[in-house]
Amino acid sequence: MKSKNKIGASFAFDFFNVLWMVLFALFCLVPLVIMISASFSSDEALQNYGYTLFVKDWSINAYKVVFANVNPLLRAYGVSIVVTGGGTLINVFLTALIAYPLSKPHFKFKNAVTIMLLITMLFSPGMVPTYILITQYLKWKNTFAVMIIPQIGMTFYIILLRTFFSDIPKEIGESAKMDGCSAFREFLTITVPLSLPALATCSILVALSYWNDWGTAYLYVDDNRMWNVQMLMINLVQQAQEWKKNLGQLAGNQSSDSIVMATCILGTLPIMGVFMALQKYIVKGMTVGAVKG
């Protein structure tokens, strides 16, 4: 009787678990599907049926319009790629350099540094002081620096890497030292190659965070030549009518909504591709240190 109850409870748990996950997946997917559907819908279909899950009347006019005025999008892609690529490289390298000494048991200031790092996780300096620091002291307005540097050394990634580095058997490092290896060489030739899954996880998360960051550009970038993809999309969504007006006859009767949706699809595709190709590392890296062997 007891085991029957157990089987029933387990089935109910699995059922609701799967149901919840399916619902959550739909919650995430439906807006994306509607976005794709609207971008491929004709003007008449949008007028008559509004946003729908499936395309009622196919049209690629919205994409034709976007590609007719592709310069802003290409430039924004360029900015996003430089910031995401360059930022991720610098960010992950420096984060690993901070995490490495913290993973060493003999490092004297390990606890003090860790507490200092944790404080930055709990307390934020606030928008106005940050704005004053960046615009009046560092003078980083309208620069790549403001889009890259403030995100470097995030505590979460430092702790993730520190945990992974700590799991590397210390005997490997000790034997290398006996052969005359310096600490930096040990970091580069032993720790880094053995920590590739954790570094890959960090890289993907950092890259996603750089790619999706519109807040920094919104606050600190006034020059439209420095807009990243997210900033361009925000402006397009908010100014669709004016943007369409500027295109004049190029836009024809195409609804500004479908033009905006097409631009959003083009802005989202690259990072979606990267995420889908590398997402297995995220799961792997997130469970780093979860089970001690």
């Binding site: 610098i90 420096l94 003078k139 980083w140 309208n142 620069t143 620096a145 540097i149």
Partner: peptide, 19 residues
């Protein structure tokens, strides 16, 4: 590597001088 990082910071810093 360190020179590379310093150079990168320099480029970012120079870009910063436009304000």
């Amino acid at each position: 590597i360190i020179a590379g990082l310093i150079a990168a910071s320099g480029v970012l810093g120079m870009a910063a001088c436009s304000g």
